[in-house]
């Protein structure tokens, strides 16, 4: 993200955004749906719980509703799961080309390691819960929803950014 200044130059963010838009357009053209990310995380979670505790999933409402929506196929046989696998490969290749591959723990200059990993895990949890409520994350709801001008998607996007701006001040120490 923007806070690490490296020797290798990043692509102009506006150009990257434009290219992402073209990708999204092609996705909609080819498959009739937009991009996503949190859906894959949901699929992985459901699959994991299903394999660890099958009795639990068949008796709990959330998993029942999930199974009903996805008509008997394995949660991993999902468009988004394959898409995210592609994202991982693509990101890895991109990192390889621009020489940005290394195991590294990144944080703001004034944040402690502890604060960073607690922040990351709580942030992750909040995204997990939030993306379920919002029926998608920045990719599935905001980006894709905006592309097809869905009221819900645009609303979610505005709420995400409103939330981020509203809370940014209180957690600024993490980043600057």
């Amino acid at each position: 993200m923007g806070n690490d200044m490296k020797e290798t130059k990043y692509m102009n963010p506006y150009l990257a955004g434009f290219l992402l838009g073209l990708l999204l357009l092609m996705t909609i053209y080819i498959s009739g749906r937009g991009l996503g990310a949190s859906g894959a995380i949901k699929s992985f979670t459901v699959a994991a719980v299903e394999s660890i505790a099958p009795a639990h999933t068949s008796s709990t409402k959330f998993y029942q509703e999930y199974a009903k929506e996805h008509q008997g196929t394995s949660p991993l046989m999902n468009w988004l799961v394959f898409e995210v696998i592609g994202v991982v490969i693509g990101a890895f290749l991109s990192g390889l080309i621009s020489d940005r591959l290394d195991l590294k723990f990144e944080k703001g200059p004034n944040a402690t390691n502890r604060a960073r990993w607690i922040g990351a895990i709580i942030g992750g949890i909040l995204w997990g819960v939030g993306s379920q409520l919002g029926r998608g994350c920045t990719s599935g709801a905001a980006l894709s929803g905006m592309a097809v001008m869905s009221t819900g998607g645009i609303l979610t996007m505005m709420a995400i950014f409103a939330g981020a701006y509203a809370f940014a001040f209180f957690f600024r120490k993490l980043w600057i």
């Binding site: 709580i122 995204w127 939030g130 709420a159 701006y165």
Partner: peptide, 28 residues
Amino acid sequence: AIVGGLIMGLGFVLGGFCPGTSVCAAAI
């Protein structure tokens, strides 16, 4: 949509990623 969005906003500030970017960053 609104409550979920606000929660995600807070998650943004705390975690520094959204699910899409986190997957990319983890990949490198």
